[in-house]
Design a protein around this nucleic acid. Structure first.
Lengths: 244, 244
DNA sequence: AAGTGGTCTAGACCACTAT
DNA sequence: TAGTGGTCTAGACCACTTA
């Protein structure tokens, strides 16, 4: 119990039975004052230990009630390799946030290989599960592609995939590139997802290409507790050739 | 400055100039006692604010010296769709951790569709950049596949891919499934990666199949600050059929 | 009404860095 | 040697949940 900070020692003592399943999900942990008395530390130390467990996702704090072992959250798997149906939040219920026309800014402009200031459609939707937001999908495409047709994101029937929609407008998408990473949640997203800004979230930056030309790009932002990405890759023919 | 906790208020005041680039990466922030005096809060409040920024990855604490705006970390992109070369940490320098024989446990057994207790080879390696560990790759395969041949993970020349190696042993891999997620770093991994246990890390669980039979499965664990995953998907033929 | 988590104050010591 | 971050103590008030 020495050399190591006391709050880590207390956290370890609590973490063990949680990971081993001795403390069932949903059960209450000792309160921070109780812990302090039990282990002979100050209340700040027990508080520090409990907040550490919260930040690790093992424990949930319910103000006024106590600390509880977290129930294993419902995991949603997003299959990234079937392009059969709807928008980017596929297995979930979709809550459309509409389409706006805007002039494209730095990063998105680069992904679409457009000059700054070109007009694009921005379309967003939330993926919902049990009436709770789980993932946010935001897509950008050059307005010039479909403007004036009935194939704009705003005109298309709900549930139409980009491939179908742009295909009908004469744009044959044949290549998709996805980049997956984790970053802190930013502000417009955090209020939509009802998560704290700064919380790490899983991000998929996807770009659709017709040959070398990018024709649509999107961000999928999802809670790391609830979201998994699934890729089914076929190696049917020869081993893939070198890319980069 | 009201309604909101003061530490969030202080954190916001610091976050703004960092994100806007007014505070250059590497520059020092005011110390916690200086901040406390400046904004008329207690030292615990300024400390809370600074630790929040640290947890968001914007700021780095150097004990005895101060808080510094973090230098943008080197990002490493792992291309998950070329299977051309070596082990699972491809663009990086590989540090082999060897191959062990072990009896398979719960989760890995399920992924390989084996009964508990079947013998498997476990092979690990670290991906290094600038002599710092960035990602950890651990692979499991049934020992029965290659035992007695010169195609075991231990016998193969370094830099041989699973596809090549098992292919030479008569196991033709034709399908790969990857599941991407984020979870807290656990103990054996954290000391190898020299990261704190509990820190969120990007995880790719990959399974190689010959037809319906899983023949190899692996975990790629990487720091969320340094790792991105790249998927290049070709839609050359008809839209992919429905899976799952 | 009692207990709880979230926040806050005003101090303190240690190991470390910078000078 | 002074300053810094990490840790720690011993209190406190508030809004909330629980009974």
């Amino acid at each position: 119990m020495d050399g190591q900070p006391r709050y880590l020692w207390v956290a370890d003592l609590l973490r063990r039975p949680i990971l081993d399943g001795e403390l069932e999900p949903g059960s209450r942990l000792p309160s921070r004052s109780r812990l302090a008395r039990t282990y002979g530390v100050s209340e700040q130390v027990s508080r520090h230990a409990l907040r550490l467990l919260v930040s690790e996702g093992l424990v949930e704090a319910r103000p006024g009630s106590g600390y509880y072992v977290r129930t294993v959250p419902q995991i949603h798997r997003f299959s990234r390799t079937d392009r059969s149906s709807g928008a980017g939040v596929d297995p979930l219920q979709r809550a459309d946030l509409g389409t706006r026309t805007e002039t494209v800014c730095g990063i998105v402009a680069r992904r679409l290989e457009l000059r700054d200031g070109v007009r694009v459609f921005r379309t967003s939707c939330l993926g919902m599960a049990d009436d709770m937001p789980v993932a946010l999908h935001t897509a950008w495409e050059p307005a010039a592609l479909t403007q004036g047709t009935l194939r704009t994101p705003a005109d298309a029937e709900a549930g139409t995939s980009v491939l179908q929609r742009l295909g009908a407008a004469g744009v044959a998408i044949d290549r998709v590139v996805e980049e997956v990473g984790v970053r802190p949640l930013r502000e417009p997203e955090s209020s939509l997802l009802k998560l704290a800004p700064g919380l790490p979230v899983l991000v998929v930056e996807r770009t659709h290409y017709q040959g070398r030309r990018p024709v649509e790009t999107s961000d999928l932002v999802g809670s790391i507790d609830h979201c998994r990405l699934l890729y089914r890759l076929s190696l049917a023919r020869s081993p893939k050739r070198e890319g980069r």
